[in-house]
Computed example of a mutant assay.
Amino acid sequence: MIDHAHDLASVQTATERLLTAVGALDNAAVTQSSRLPGWTRGHVLTHLARNADALVNVLAGRPMYASGEARDADIEQGAPRALDAQLADVRESAERFRRAGAAPADWSRTVELRNGVTDRAAGVPFRRWAEVELHHVDLGIGYELEDLPAEFTEREIDFLARRFAGHRDVPATSLTADDGRSWSTGGGAEGGPVMVEGAAADLLGWLAGRRDGSGLRVKGGALPVLPPLERERRRSRSSGGDDRAGLPL
């Protein structure tokens, strides 16, 4: 069972950690490239703020964004802002999300995200947690996949492994972390079973599209090529569903 209250608290902790780290930057650093192709750090920070507001919309039963074009335009418009404006926006939007999460609600209800993806309301806080943690890494300011909370890393690997389970382009694949934790995924494509082993951070990086998998050990075939993030838009029924966590929502 998902503990949405625990995840909401984890979102706050992760947000404060990000704000503290970003607060040590300067205006020039905000305009520099992030690790996401085509995005500066200002793009990432603006996206995080708008994502918080979008998930408030989701919890309120409204469309996540007015449109994909509006989402992209808001990010482009906000990206060049100075550090103080970025920090205030991330902080204030995070507070709006916190208040929405604290309001009495039926957390078992179904909500709709982008591209027709659905989830239970209780899954939304973890999705926000993933956005904050992974985009903190994407900023390229010293916070790495190895620094992520162990609980988050395990749950995100599980989320993504289930996300690719049965995928027609991914052969049967077993994942084993160096500490012995294991998962299975794929199975819809010919070949396999492929055995992928390595540090949990490297497994997560590969699944979330943050690393190329070169740090992993592979047996039984080549490391599977995972589908591009934006191409996968099938409908989900639960928080283990069909959109890839870590994708900029």
Score class of each variant (00 low, 15 high):
residue 26 D to W: 07
residue 136 H to L: 10
residue 119 D to M: 15
residue 126 F to T: 04
residue 237 R to I: 14
residue 88 A to D: 15
residue 211 R to D: 12
residue 221 G to D: 01
residue 14 A to I: 09
residue 76 E to Q: 14
residue 153 T to M: 12
residue 98 R to Q: 11
residue 86 Q to V: 07
residue 9 A to T: 11
residue 126 F to P: 03
residue 86 Q to F: 14
residue 87 L to E: 10
residue 57 N to V: 09
residue 188 G to H: 03
residue 116 G to F: 06
residue 60 A to E: 15
residue 105 A to D: 12
residue 181 R to F: 04
residue 230 E to F: 11
residue 101 G to F: 07
residue 122 A to W: 01
residue 168 R to Y: 02
residue 13 T to E: 15
residue 227 P to G: 04
residue 38 G to D: 02
residue 2 I to R: 11
residue 213 G to Q: 00
residue 236 S to N: 08
residue 40 T to G: 05
residue 118 T to W: 00
residue 164 F to S: 05
residue 176 T to A: 13
residue 161 A to G: 05
residue 1 M to T: 11
residue 228 P to F: 00
residue 144 E to R: 14
residue 241 G to K: 03
residue 125 P to M: 04
residue 249 L to F: 15
residue 179 D to K: 04
residue 197 E to N: 13
residue 112 E to L: 03
residue 139 L to N: 08
residue 153 T to V: 12
residue 235 R to N: 13
residue 233 R to Q: 14
residue 247 L to D: 02
residue 67 S to W: 09
residue 140 G to C: 00
residue 193 P to S: 05
residue 126 F to D: 04
residue 198 G to R: 05
residue 116 G to T: 00
residue 74 D to V: 14
residue 28 A to V: 13
residue 64 M to Q: 13
residue 124 V to E: 01
residue 106 D to C: 04
residue 25 L to Q: 05
residue 105 A to P: 03
residue 234 R to Q: 14
residue 140 G to Y: 12
residue 242 D to L: 11
residue 72 D to H: 13
residue 245 A to L: 13
residue 211 R to H: 05
residue 181 R to M: 04
residue 126 F to V: 08
residue 198 G to Y: 00
residue 222 A to G: 04
residue 115 N to Y: 14
residue 20 T to G: 09
residue 111 V to N: 08
residue 91 R to Q: 13
residue 222 A to E: 09
residue 149 P to Q: 06
residue 246 G to N: 03
residue 143 Y to H: 14
residue 123 G to L: 04
residue 216 L to K: 05
residue 213 G to K: 02
residue 211 R to Q: 11
residue 113 L to W: 01
residue 135 H to C: 06
residue 90 V to N: 03
residue 238 S to A: 13
residue 237 R to P: 09
residue 54 A to F: 08
residue 200 A to P: 12
residue 140 G to I: 02
residue 221 G to L: 03
residue 63 P to M: 02
residue 8 L to F: 04
residue 10 S to K: 14
residue 26 D to E: 00
residue 65 Y to M: 03
residue 57 N to T: 13
residue 142 G to T: 08
residue 95 E to C: 10
residue 169 D to R: 12
residue 117 V to L: 08
residue 60 A to Y: 06
residue 120 R to E: 13
residue 99 R to G: 04
residue 8 L to V: 09
residue 115 N to I: 07
residue 5 A to D: 10
residue 102 A to Y: 03
residue 17 R to I: 09
residue 169 D to Q: 12
residue 139 L to C: 02
residue 200 A to V: 06
residue 162 R to H: 15
residue 229 L to M: 12
residue 130 A to H: 10
residue 117 V to K: 07
residue 235 R to W: 02
residue 64 M to L: 12
residue 164 F to N: 05
residue 87 L to Q: 13
residue 23 G to F: 11
residue 67 S to F: 09
residue 32 Q to L: 06
residue 120 R to K: 14
residue 144 E to A: 11
residue 21 A to Y: 09
residue 204 L to C: 03
residue 131 E to H: 05
residue 52 A to G: 09
residue 152 F to I: 08
residue 148 L to A: 10
residue 233 R to D: 02
residue 90 V to W: 07
residue 111 V to D: 03
residue 152 F to R: 02
residue 226 L to D: 01
residue 201 A to S: 14
